[in-house]
Amino acid sequence: MDYLERVIKETMRHYTPLPIFARNVEKETQIGGYLIPEGTQIATFGSTFTIFPAMLHLNADIYPEPEKFNPDNFLPEACHSRHPYSFIPFSAGYRNCPGIKYAMLQMKTVISTLIRSYRFHPSDKCPTPKNLRVMFSTTLKFVKGCYVKIEPRT
């Protein structure tokens, strides 16, 4: 289950479930070398700070070879060497998703149950990773779907 959790997290690093979220700038904040004053107008959300997790998750300063799928990015020693907010698929801080632990348990339960009984392969209708397109909605979605072939294990 540890490896499965690393695979799920690495998948969410590449395809973040929440492509964008916003926070109000309630007090003067220092981020990197930038000072963000209270009430600053950022992006089109008024006095809201907009966060794009994909920009963080695909940052080469945080994840070596960020385009490469590597579940070892989530080994305990790798996680301890990074900032705690370097991976935020469901937001972060006191306003993060309250169901994040439940969601992880649910994903691990469903995936582990399915892969014990079935084999999964890309279907002929599935685009190659190079041609896979996603769209921003409430959550990240595939433009034309992502089809798989399912075969029972024997």
Rank of each mutant, 00 (worst) to 15 (best):
F87H: 02
P98F: 11
T139C: 03
Y63K: 08
P66N: 04
Y63S: 09
F87V: 01
T138S: 10
T109R: 01
A60L: 01
F45W: 00
N131T: 01
I36H: 07
S81C: 03
S123Q: 05
R133L: 12
C79Q: 13
N73V: 09
V134Q: 05
T44S: 11
V143W: 04
P127S: 07
R133E: 14
I115S: 12
E26Y: 03
A22W: 05
D2Q: 13
P19F: 06
I100S: 04
E77A: 15
Y85D: 03
R6W: 08
M55F: 07
A54C: 00
R23K: 14
A22I: 03
P89I: 01
T50M: 11
Y118A: 01
F136I: 10
E65I: 02
F136C: 06
D2Y: 07
R95H: 15
I88D: 02
C126E: 05
Q106G: 03
G46P: 01
Y34I: 14
Y147I: 00
R116N: 14
L58Q: 15
T29V: 13
T29L: 14
F45I: 00
I88V: 15
L58V: 09
P66H: 04
K9C: 12
I42R: 01
E5P: 04
C146N: 12
I150T: 13
F45H: 01
D124T: 14
F49Q: 03
R153W: 08
N131V: 00
N131S: 06
M107D: 02
R6E: 12
N131H: 08
I51G: 02
H121V: 03
I31C: 06
K101H: 14
G145N: 07
T109C: 04
S47N: 15
F74C: 06
K68L: 06
Q41W: 05
T138Q: 10
A92K: 02
F120C: 12
D2E: 15
I31D: 11
C126G: 09
V148E: 07
C97E: 08
D61R: 10
P84E: 02
C126V: 07
A103G: 15
T109E: 03
N73W: 06
P127A: 05
E28Q: 14
V143R: 11
G32L: 11
F90H: 01
G32R: 12
E26G: 04
C79L: 11
